[in-house]
Simulated scan of single mutants.
Amino acid sequence: MDDRWPHQTVDVLGVRVSRIDVGRLREFVAAAVKDRTKLTITFANPDYVRKAQKDRALRDLMNGFDVNLPDGWGVVLAAKIFGRPVPGRMANDDLTDDLFGQPAEEGWRVFLFGNAPGVAEEAAHNLRAWFPGLAIAGTQHGHWAKDGALPPETAERLIAEINEAAPDILHVGLGTPLQQRFVADHRDRIDAPVIITCGAYFEHLAERREYYPSWVLKLRVGFLYRLAREPRRLWRRYTVELGSYLGRVVVHRIRHGKQS
């Protein structure tokens, strides 16, 4: 974590979650682009937090980012239970207007790296239509990993491609923990001042701008909506594992009380 981006945080089962609002986030991004100062941003959802509690390496990766935004109401709820509430849920889907509207307004260049072949290109096509004037510096898919890691020669080639495109903001959608490891290992060699992890976000952008219908966001049942769309892949995450996560939050609160 860089001390040039000071802000308050809440400890959610060992993961340092940022307590900033959208306005402060936009200020950080603007300052990083203007000063060419590195700013790394990732997201903490209940699944990542639960895994990080058991996996010290993943916890250290997440805590090494400058900003760690609350992705999911489970993290928002935990912060409130621990006595240090966050302004609200700040997943990639919630921030589309900011992540791409701000660059379109300012003339910044963005690069989309990740997800399956063709997805980033389709996402870029939609983004150009939604945000006139947005400069997409380049796109590249993220299916390069072997045995859970990017081969060194592949990483070298991808970094050279990204730097050649000269983006101001790089979005990395490789899935956790691969995307966090890629940023941690190569942040100082990537010229883009702002690097943001985004998981499967390009898939949402490629399909439509509002992945979650407004009623889903209003009722705060995004996890149920995703479960209904992908039951085979997500049923365990949103039943057994989510229940385990919430149980750990309650136990931690009982044992340690509120955070000061």
Rank of each mutant, 00 (worst) to 15 (best):
D3H: 11
D3T: 09
D3I: 06
R4V: 09
W5F: 09
P6I: 07
H7D: 13
Q8K: 15
Q8Y: 11
T9E: 14
V12H: 02
V12N: 02
L13M: 05
G14T: 01
R16Q: 14
S18N: 06
I20Q: 05
D21I: 04
D21F: 06
F28R: 05
K34H: 14
K38V: 11
K38D: 05
K38A: 12
K38G: 09
L39N: 08
L39I: 02
I41K: 03
A52Q: 07
A52D: 05
A52K: 08
Q53G: 15
K54T: 13
R56K: 13
A57M: 08
A57P: 06
R59Q: 15
D60L: 12
M62N: 04
F65L: 03
G72R: 04
G72S: 10
G74H: 02
V76M: 10
L77Q: 07
L77E: 11
K80D: 07
I81T: 06
I81V: 15
V86P: 05
P87C: 11
N92E: 07
N92Y: 11
D93T: 14
D94R: 04
T96K: 01
D98F: 03
A104W: 00
E106P: 00
W108N: 01
R109Q: 09
V110N: 02
F111W: 03
L112C: 02
G114P: 04
A116K: 13
P117L: 04
V119I: 08
A120Y: 06
A123T: 04
A124P: 02
R128I: 02
P132H: 02
G133D: 07
A135H: 10
A137F: 02
G138Q: 01
G138R: 01
T139L: 00
T139H: 04
T139S: 01
Q140G: 02
H141L: 02
A145W: 09
K146T: 12
D147S: 14
A149W: 03
A149S: 12
P151G: 13
A155I: 01
A160C: 00
I162R: 06
A165L: 01
A165E: 04
D168L: 06
D168I: 03
I169A: 06
I169G: 04
T176M: 05
T176C: 10
Q180R: 03
R181F: 05
R181I: 03
A184T: 10
R187V: 08
D188I: 10
I190W: 10
I190Q: 06
A192Q: 11
A192D: 10
P193R: 07
I195M: 15
T197E: 00
A200G: 07
A200N: 08
H204G: 05
H204Q: 11
L205M: 10
A206E: 09
R208Y: 09
E210M: 13
E210A: 15
E210R: 14
S214W: 12
S214N: 12
L217Y: 09
L217D: 13
K218E: 11
L219D: 05
V221N: 11
G222Q: 14
F223H: 15
F223W: 15
A228Y: 08
R229E: 03
R233L: 12
W235A: 15
R237C: 09
T239K: 13
V240S: 12
V240T: 13
G243S: 11
L246S: 00
G247M: 01
G247S: 10
V249H: 00
V251P: 03
H256E: 14
G257M: 08
K258F: 05
